[in-house]
Amino acid sequence: MQGVVKVNSALNMRSGPGSNYGVIGTLRNNDKVEIIKEVDGWYEIRFNGKVGSASKSYITIVN
């Protein structure tokens, strides 16, 4: 499943599904990500070869 980031500035990509996990990357508006699965309001995603988590509130699913 594919998604597109929708933010005003930037979205942190984290090492796990929650804001208490470390930041491993930064996503910008309109970045395209691969959604692997949903976990507690977060998506596990793949972006630029990295796997991490980002809040699903800022990612829109595209077909």
Rank of each mutant, 00 (worst) to 15 (best):
V39S: 09
G22L: 12
V39H: 11
G25C: 13
S19Q: 13
R46Y: 11
S53A: 14
V33C: 05
V62Q: 09
N8V: 12
S57K: 15
I59Y: 00
G49M: 05
G41F: 06
G25L: 05
R28Q: 13
N30R: 07
D40F: 08
E38N: 04
T26L: 13
A10W: 14
N30M: 10
N63W: 09
G22D: 15
R46D: 06
V4F: 06
V39T: 11
S19L: 15
G41L: 06
Y43S: 01
K56C: 08
N12A: 14
G41I: 04
I36K: 02
K56P: 06
K6Y: 06
S9R: 13
G16D: 00
V23F: 04
K56N: 06
S15C: 09
I45P: 00
N8H: 12
S53P: 01
S57L: 14
G41W: 05
I59L: 03
D40L: 08
G22Y: 07
I24N: 04
Y43E: 00
V23N: 04
N30T: 05
I35K: 00
S9F: 12
L11H: 06
I35A: 00
K6E: 07
V33G: 01
V33F: 05
V39W: 10
V7M: 05
L27M: 06
G22C: 12
V62K: 05
N29W: 07
Y21G: 07
V5I: 08
I35F: 02
N29Q: 08
V4E: 06
V33Y: 03
I59Q: 01
S57N: 14
R14N: 05
F47M: 06
S19F: 15
A54F: 04
G49V: 03
G18V: 00
R46K: 12
T26K: 12
G25A: 13
R28Y: 13
A54C: 11
W42F: 08
N12R: 12
G49C: 08
R14G: 04
M1K: 12
I45N: 00
N8F: 06
M1V: 13
I45M: 02
K50V: 14
G18I: 00
N29Y: 09
V62I: 14
S15I: 06
N12G: 11
A10C: 15
S15A: 13
G52I: 03
S53Q: 06
K37T: 10
K50Q: 13
S55D: 15
G49F: 04
V33R: 00
K37G: 15
F47A: 08
T60I: 14
T60V: 14
A10I: 15
E34K: 06
N63L: 11
W42S: 01
N29K: 09
E44L: 14
G18C: 07
V39G: 06
K32E: 11
S53W: 15
E38D: 07
N8C: 15
G22F: 08
K6T: 12
K50T: 12
D31G: 02
V23E: 05
G3E: 02
Y58E: 11
V23P: 06
N20I: 08
I45R: 00
S19A: 14
I24D: 02
K56Q: 06
I36D: 02
E34D: 11
Q2T: 13
P17K: 03
S9E: 13
I45K: 00
L27C: 05
G49R: 04
I35S: 00
N12F: 10
S9D: 14
G49K: 05
G25F: 04
G22A: 14
D31H: 03
E34A: 08
N12M: 11
G41P: 02
S53K: 05
E34L: 11
E44W: 14
G3T: 02
Y43P: 00
G41T: 06
N48S: 07
N8P: 10
S53E: 03
Y58N: 12
S19Y: 15
N8Y: 07
I61K: 07
M13N: 02
R46E: 09
G3M: 04
R28I: 10
V4S: 05
R28D: 07
M1F: 11
V7Y: 06
S15F: 06
S15E: 11
N12E: 15
K37A: 13
I61N: 04
A10Y: 15
K32C: 13
S57Y: 14
Y58I: 07
R28M: 12
I45W: 00
T60K: 13
R28T: 09
G41Q: 07
V39A: 08
V5G: 04
S9L: 11
R14I: 05
L11W: 00
N48Y: 06
W42D: 02
T60M: 12
N8Q: 12
G18A: 03
R14S: 05
Y21A: 04
V4P: 02
I61C: 08
I45L: 08
V62L: 13
V7P: 02
S19V: 14
G49H: 05
R46M: 12
A10L: 14
V7C: 15
G3S: 02
N29F: 08
N12T: 10
S53M: 15
E38Y: 06
G3F: 05
N20L: 06
I61V: 12
V51N: 08
M13Y: 04
M13A: 05
K56H: 06
D31R: 01
K50C: 10
G18D: 06
L11V: 15
G41H: 06
L27S: 01
T26I: 15
I45Y: 00
R46I: 14
W42T: 00
L11G: 07
G49W: 02
N12Q: 14
T26V: 14
Y43W: 06
R14A: 04
G18P: 00
V51L: 11
I24P: 01
V33H: 00
S53T: 10
N48C: 09
R28P: 03
R14W: 08
M1T: 12
T60L: 11
I36Y: 07
M13L: 13
G3H: 03
E34Q: 10
T26R: 11
I36W: 05
G49Y: 03
N29V: 07
Y21C: 09
G49P: 02
K6I: 11
I36M: 10
I59V: 07
E44C: 15
D40T: 05
V7G: 10
N20V: 06
D40R: 08
N63R: 11
R28K: 13
E38C: 09
V4C: 12
F47T: 04
G3N: 02
P17H: 05
S53F: 15
G52F: 02
G22V: 12
N12C: 14
V51D: 06
K56V: 10
E34M: 10
S19M: 15
S55W: 12
V23T: 08
P17T: 04
P17S: 05
M1I: 13
Y43F: 10
V33S: 01
I24V: 12
I35Q: 01
Q2L: 14
P17I: 04
I36G: 02
G22Q: 14
S15R: 06
T60C: 14
N30G: 15
D31N: 05
W42P: 00
N30S: 07
I24L: 07
S57V: 12
M13I: 15
N30V: 02
I61A: 07
S15N: 09
Y58H: 14
V5C: 06
I35P: 00
D31T: 08
E34Y: 11
P17N: 07
P17E: 03
N12D: 15
Y43K: 00
Q2I: 15
K32W: 12
K6A: 08
G41V: 04
N20Y: 10
A10M: 13
N48H: 10
I59D: 03
M1R: 13
G3K: 02
G52T: 02
R14H: 15
S57A: 14
N48W: 06
S19E: 15
I59C: 04
E34G: 04
N48P: 03
E44G: 02
S15W: 05
I59E: 03
S15L: 09
K6W: 03
G22S: 13
M13C: 09
Y43T: 00
G16C: 07
V51A: 08
S19G: 11
N63D: 13
K6P: 01
V62E: 11
E34F: 11
L11I: 15
M13S: 03
V4T: 08
P17M: 05
E34S: 07
V5N: 01
V23Y: 05
G49I: 03
Y43N: 00
V4Y: 06
Y58P: 04
K6C: 14
L11Q: 10
N8A: 12
V33D: 00
V5A: 04
P17R: 03
V62H: 08
G25Q: 08
V39C: 10
N8L: 10
V39N: 08
M1L: 14
R14M: 13
G41S: 07
S19C: 15
G22P: 15
V51C: 09
M13D: 03
G3Y: 03
I24A: 03
F47W: 10
V7T: 14
D40E: 11
N12I: 14
A10D: 12
G49Q: 06
K37N: 12
G25R: 02
S57M: 14
I24C: 07
G22R: 12
K50D: 07
M1D: 06
W42K: 00
Y43A: 00
A10V: 15
